[in-house]
Amino acid sequence: MAAPSETTVFYRNLRWLRFVDGFGRRGSGALDYLGGIAEMTGQVFGGLFRKPLYRQEILHQMDENGVKSLGITNVTALFTGMVLALQTAYSLAAFGGKLFIGRVVSLSLVRELGPVLTALMVGGRVGAGITAELGSMTVTEQVDAMRAMAVSPIKRLVTPRFIAVVVMLPILTALADLLGILGGLLIAVYELSISASFYFNSIWNQLRISDISSGLGKSFFFAMEIALIGCYNGLTVKGGATSVGIATTRTVVAASISILISDFFLTKLFLAL
């Protein structure tokens, strides 16, 4: 075969350059994104306690994003607890696993699964909802109209949602822990014929305050991630309805990934404390 002509080589190199350039561009895009979120976070914290506080709006958002998420987070937790109990009994059968059910279920729920699964569920439901709402407000110039009326969209739209999610997610997580443990109880009592008092006793002897506080502590950080990503993606939508859809999808992906990644580091942090 003949050696490639000079033109072919030129274009081949050009393609490579484009490829590298594409990486660079995506990289700087990611930096812009992180920078934007950091800037918005600064603005939210900067104005957190400055008037006006919009109490009514905060309560409304707590209801919308917190209370109305109870169904999905509770069902998730209940069935996770039940599955955990079954799996523990099955996989630890050789070691007399039945006796450990209370400990395993409660520890894994309170330390890990309760906060993470609740955050993932809320991240999907609430994060997407926030992005869709703020995004459609942005593309229909409602956010600009707010600015034109000398009202800060950060104070009026972002801060109430931020406070609502940060307050509600730990509460949802605590309820999820409780329901998961009750789910484990159901299986322990009706499937594995362990007495309820034994189940609760083993939990009581095992679970420490630090387990609970590390779990709830994590959910506090997850809440901030969900609210900030949701709001930022909504307020930065450009274009029309299609872009709102894309931004919403992006929120679910970004929130889930950031929850899972930060979970690792937070776990390390809380273990070190």
């Binding site: 229909t140 409602q142 600009d144 109209a145 034109a148 000398a150």
Partner: peptide, 23 residues
């Protein structure tokens, strides 16, 4: 943005689509 507020109170704007808050 904050220093702009007093000016914006004296200058209002009618947006093309109205931009009413639909909630």
């Amino acid at each position: 943005e904050e220093e702009m507020a007093p000016v914006r109170l004296r200058v209002s704007m009618l947006f093309q689509g109205g931009a009413l808050f639909d909630s």
